[in-house]
Amino acid sequence: MIKNTALILALFTGTMLPVQASITVDGNLTDWGIKRNGNANDWTPNPGIHFTVEDQTGNLNQYLNPGYGGQAYDAEALYAYITDSHLFIALATGHNPNTPNNPLGNSYGAGDFAIDFGLDGTYEVGINVKPDWDTFGVAKGLYRVDEWAYGLWENGNAPGYLKSEHPTAILAGTLLGIADMAISGPQTGYGQWKNDTHYFYEISLGLGLLRDAGWNGSSFNIHWTQLCANDFIIVDPPVTVPEAGSLLMMSLGLFGMSWVRRKKTSF
């Protein structure tokens, strides 16, 4: 009898899930494999974790994409890891989560995490970060989103840039549940610009919540940016996980095949 869920998924999807890592949601990314050696490889995680790295530096006049802001608005690295029960997300950024949202003072707060089911450019779901200035919803809430806010930049501001593909904050939606989230304080010593200040977000949510939001096991993007959208970052987890009912049917089917095989070989 096959007991390993990852092996069951591999047989039916052709994709082997990585061995489940022990991840504690505490804002410390050491258990993701993130290092503190002061070089570019610090951002490379453990095997099996999908990631995007775009670490930059500089002052507020430094160009990012599609806007400016240097280290203070740098979306540095985004990570995603899927087990048979949870989605884990981690973000490294130079943007202080407590940055006030005061556009008249050229200051923009932290955005929410957005998820695009099916990679079609529509972000159906959001995870609400909920800093002090945010008037919508509850902190750590997973929402089926009805309306997004967007950043400062219009279509074509940068090559291929489409405003609709870069949501910044949830304005309206339906609360589906609460994610586990931790945000670190300021940290230094990471990456090739080791004197830069970094902040880390870490999130865990059950796959059941994603299914409640309409996810059918297909590919999806995770997106994050600030309210100005001066620098965005996207990661697309590569593993397709069947729905819970499908897993049960697979398990029962494999158990049946194993039982029949044992019965035949007993004669």
Rank of each mutant, 00 (worst) to 15 (best):
25 V>D: 08
25 V>F: 05
28 N>Y: 09
29 L>N: 06
32 W>P: 08
33 G>N: 09
34 I>H: 03
39 N>D: 15
42 D>R: 11
43 W>C: 01
43 W>L: 14
44 T>H: 10
45 P>M: 08
46 N>E: 12
49 I>K: 07
50 H>I: 05
51 F>P: 03
52 T>R: 12
55 D>V: 13
55 D>A: 15
56 Q>R: 15
56 Q>K: 15
58 G>D: 05
58 G>I: 08
58 G>S: 07
60 L>M: 11
63 Y>G: 00
63 Y>E: 11
65 N>I: 11
67 G>Y: 05
71 Q>G: 13
72 A>E: 11
73 Y>G: 01
76 E>Y: 00
76 E>L: 09
77 A>P: 06
78 L>T: 02
81 Y>R: 06
83 T>G: 07
85 S>E: 15
86 H>Y: 14
87 L>W: 11
88 F>N: 10
91 L>V: 01
95 H>S: 01
96 N>A: 07
99 T>L: 02
100 P>Q: 06
100 P>M: 02
100 P>E: 09
101 N>W: 12
109 G>F: 12
112 D>V: 10
113 F>W: 10
113 F>G: 05
115 I>W: 04
115 I>Y: 11
116 D>C: 10
118 G>F: 05
118 G>V: 08
119 L>K: 13
121 G>R: 05
122 T>R: 12
122 T>V: 15
124 E>L: 07
126 G>V: 01
131 P>D: 15
